[in-house]
Write a protein that binds this DNA or RNA. Sequence first.
DNA 1: CTGAAAGCGCTAACAT
DNA 2: ATGTTAGCGCTTTCAG
Lengths: 343, 343
Amino acid sequence: MITIYDIAKKTGYTAPTVSKALNGTGGLSASTRKKILEVAKEIGYKPNMAARALTTKKSFLIGIIYEDTHMKKGFEHPLFSGILSKFRIEMENSGYDLIFLSKSFGFGKTSYLDHCVHRNVDGVVVINPAETDSEILELASSDIPCVSTNDIIPGIPYVITENFDAGYKAAEYFIQNGHKKMCYIAGPSSVYTTASMERLEGFKKCLSENQICFDESLIETSPSWFRENGFNAMEKIWKRHNDVTAVFAANDGMAIGAMEYFQSIGVSVPDKVSFIGFDDELFSSYFTPTLTTFRQNRARIAEIAAEILCNRLAGLPVADCVRVDANFIVRDSVKDISKISIL
Amino acid sequence: MITIYDIAKKTGYTAPTVSKALNGTGGLSASTRKKILEVAKEIGYKPNMAARALTTKKSFLIGIIYEDTHMKKGFEHPLFSGILSKFRIEMENSGYDLIFLSKSFGFGKTSYLDHCVHRNVDGVVVINPAETDSEILELASSDIPCVSTNDIIPGIPYVITENFDAGYKAAEYFIQNGHKKMCYIAGPSSVYTTASMERLEGFKKCLSENQICFDESLIETSPSWFRENGFNAMEKIWKRHNDVTAVFAANDGMAIGAMEYFQSIGVSVPDKVSFIGFDDELFSSYFTPTLTTFRQNRARIAEIAAEILCNRLAGLPVADCVRVDANFIVRDSVKDISKISIL
DNA sequence: CTGAAAGCGCTAACAT
DNA sequence: ATGTTAGCGCTTTCAG
């Protein structure tokens, strides 16, 4: 292992001087600095982060909270995985490395905060936490800088899709296509995860602005986000209202499950019933009909989250809430029935 | 921050004694050990990994090589993401944390090996490397223990799907269903990634054992693994042989692209042409027809890879090659034409 | 502008 | 069975 002492010996300077040259701190003459840097490169010096972390109390490590208790998709979830990919790139560019945080790392019961202390983590990003997680509150109230990309957790700044506007847009698009009776398949909401409800609020807002009736019986809330939940929810709604012509689902998986319900009872999609989903899953463009949906701006969310975290790490002030617009992806699952109804 | 000195002071022992008690090393009396552990727990002591790593030269950090240059799916790839999920769990249970390795971390040009040195990484898992990567060879020839889960890299033990058998099985299944003229859509192979070729070898073996003709004109090798590559490859093969009744594709994306080619020219799938893919992508069960495919045993691969790495870390001997069977998933894309042809 | 001294938290080797 | 001493590689005062 090559240390700063090797450089010191070779250049004739001492370790502190080498350290200053390497870090650009302290007033060194340009020539010594240059010489030290050259030798460092020449003998292939690499700083030892453990030693550096020990003295500076800074590890350049960012903890990631990525559990998979509710979606059951591991890293295959399009939103979370997309955020993780881009967040990693952004933080690496700023000199940080990512490490997964766990509630039971090593041996015995621990907590996220324990893990952070253990590893001297500088900051934390909450991407995909477990449903209800008191451990995160403990983290949030610590002095470790955090940022969240999907959940609204007290004390943690967040960057989340503008769900209300997306919901509004969905209703607007249905209306533009002549639909008058619409329903909503909601996903589970929790204290911190309000996306499904936010989408519904926007959806309702647009309907009411257009004097379209909507009430609780046109909403079905699923206990999970899966395909079969969509199927079941659709069946319940259809039994209450078999004149619905448009369905907005809180995610693509449920949208497709709901379409399959209609296929199972011989009702044609999108001829009889139109659909809009959410998330732009890979499979949404493989299903028949291809699904009109919203694509959350994963890269942008990750960029902003990284920026917020870096700013907090630098002691700069940060916004405690940023919303990012989703992209509306038009495919084949919504039928224009305006001409038909005019006839 | 709470250190072993705080425990020492509170218990009346010295730091090394505390250290021994905490680590279970050295012969301490049961009573002192117990007392120290109690106090440690009471005042909420957490070991500082940076300090420990500095003295022991062991970081309990595992580097992950996960790039995304050829698949372009980030963490959404079903095989790689599944392996990563399970590998993470396994290593955390053994007290290790994962860290992503990068070729250009921090500032300036670096390498995987640099990154490993920088972070004192104890071992490395190669899950999804860039196509041709001399940096990995550098790593492989270092003394850092590595394991690979998809690529065959000189000097690195690997755990990979038994592709030959899967290819054999695909052919066998087609034959059982009465097919006599089959083709193969290959993915790109590289020096280290031979999966596509291995599947082909097994496929050919079975065909020849059954006296079924097969030659190069029934193979089309795509430059990438995408949907459109499957479409294009299928078109080429079909123009050479429009009597093919069964297609084996090296991955699901290409299989579906190929099915779309037939849909585009009005040839019915699977009535006229049957399909088998590879990987069991999420979308494969959403497409019409649902795709018969192979599901690689992600969890098992990850478990074995973790075990190999842990054994190497412990200085134990390890196998340098393990193959894991894929699961054959029967869905609707293969039609039984044996009765038809008998008539 | 550069060096000397000290210390971060922990453990290894040796003594007692 | 426990303590003493020393040092991992680096940075931070503080002198000169």
